[in-house]
Design a binder for these strands. Structure first.
Lengths: 122, 122
DNA sequence: GCACTCCGTTTACGAATGTAATCGTTGATT
DNA sequence: AATCAACGATTACATTCGTAAACGGAGTGC
């Protein structure tokens, strides 16, 4: 699986790709306080893990995701649900609800979602 | 923060405590294929992290959680939401909904939850 | 053609993790 | 008292992660 620092690089590529190492650094540099070498290392690890691909562009490479964000998000979330919430979504929502950590926006969106589910299988 | 293997030990203690190292091993041994030394190491790391406490009981110790499960669950879940879902619950639920990974039970419980929220702040 | 500069590749290195084995101490046995 | 067994404490060791620095090859500029 792909690590947290690696995921930061992936997020950049998911937002827009292909990108050069330099561009990636430009986008995460300030936020992460990373040096150039750090991004390069992470890219290489991602290549080794087949999470990104690289295509030559003159003297440099442009990187693109191979791993879909959807898939990553799903794996990561499912693993958490399995470990902490018996593998189901509702208990997680219940937890945040009990902690009063559901925003108005969350609640509105959840309502919306459930309504849409109604419409689907009548 | 507490690691995944450490969390396995914590789960045992959260279910029931205090417990001896031996009892903990008995409960997770088959599932995890762990040796005695492994559990002891994990307990020591948890002690160092102040996640559990130990009280002497004759020649051995009995361990109990200091870190509340609620707190651990919250930290862990919040971190995931922050990294993958803009820090909010609804997008996570939406993701599982889109992937058709909401069970009937999930949906029923979510409905229930939202109804209860209605009742609370009228 | 030779030095310099840009990149990617390789190597580094400490902290955390997973998984134990070994050491040391202390109570129990003979 | 001498020995043994049961525990916890200390040490070990390979792997992964975060974070880079060093190395090397290929264009680029004189």
């Amino acid at each position: 699986m792909i690590s947290e620092a690696e995921a930061v690089v992936m997020e950049v590529l998911w937002r827009s790709s292909p990108r050069s190492a330099e561009e990636i650094l430009a986008e995460v540099g300030q936020a992460q306080q990373w040096q150039e070498g750090t991004v390069k290392s992470l890219l290489n690890r991602l290549l080794k893990k087949k999470a990104v691909k690289a295509e030559r562009d003159g003297r440099r490479y442009l990187y693109s995701p191979l791993l879909a964000r959807e898939k990553y998000v799903h794996q990561t979330s499912k693993s958490l649900l399995d470990r902490l919430f018996e593998g189901r979504v509702a208990p997680l929502v219940a937890h945040f609800s009990e902690q009063r950590k559901l925003s108005k926006k969350d609640i509105a969106e959840l309502r919306q979602l459930l309504e849409e589910l109604d419409d689907e299988q009548p």
